[in-house]
Simulated assay, not measured.
Amino acid sequence: MPEIATTAAEMISGMTPVLQPGTFVFITTQDPARVAALFAHAVSTVREAEGMSMLIPVESAQETGLNVDHPMRCITLNVFSSLQGVGLTAAVSSALGENGIPCNMVAGFHHDHVFLPADMCDRAMRILTALQNTAAENMKATGD
């Protein structure tokens, strides 16, 4: 396994954002049969008091007649960040928010994933790449 980034500077300077293929939508349902039918397609699930929230490919939502009004793309941050690291999510969401781009962060064991409106993904990639480059330059300048 690669070295785990633990500091904000390490995580941000090494995040290497990559736009993933596919388009996704968030849905929610209280229908156990629908959950079972979509579970194999889900990128992520969260059980909430209101029902099961699922992040699924837009095609799966269309096939089952679900709302696809808010298509999302996924940018994976390819740094191996510590589960106890502090600062990556804040830096990414702040940089995007300052540029009017909403984002939904989904953390996995190995990587963080940024889901954002499909029509904003190219601009988001430029912003995140610039954020990474600035952090890497700062680390180099300070000798970290």
Rank of each mutant, 00 (worst) to 15 (best):
I27S: 00
A136G: 03
M72S: 05
V68P: 01
A107G: 03
L96S: 00
M52D: 03
D112F: 01
P57N: 06
F115P: 10
H111E: 12
A141F: 06
L128P: 00
K140V: 15
T134W: 03
V46I: 15
A130D: 07
G65M: 13
A61C: 12
S82W: 01
F26N: 12
G85P: 05
L88H: 05
D122T: 05
I4C: 00
V43N: 08
E50R: 12
A130T: 07
M54A: 06
A135Q: 02
A9K: 06
A9G: 09
T76F: 07
M11K: 04
V25R: 00
L19K: 07
G85W: 04
A141T: 08
A135L: 07
R126L: 11
M54F: 01
N78T: 07
R123S: 06
A141Q: 14
I56E: 00
T6L: 07
I56D: 00
I4V: 15
M11Y: 03
A49P: 10
D144E: 12
H111I: 11
Q132R: 08
M105W: 05
M52Y: 06
L19F: 04
A130S: 11
T64F: 15
H111Q: 10
D31Y: 02
V114T: 03
H70C: 13
G85D: 05
T129P: 07
A5N: 06
Q84G: 15
V79D: 00
C121M: 08
F39M: 11
A42H: 03
N104G: 11
A124T: 00
K140G: 08
M72I: 12
Q30M: 10
A40Y: 11
V25T: 02
M120A: 03
A141K: 12
M11L: 15
F109G: 02
L55G: 00
F26P: 01
T134L: 09
T129S: 08
N133E: 14
I56L: 04
H41D: 15
Q20K: 11
H110M: 04
D69A: 14
I127F: 10
L96H: 04
R47Q: 14
A91V: 02
F39P: 09
A91N: 08
Q62P: 05
P21Y: 04
A9W: 06
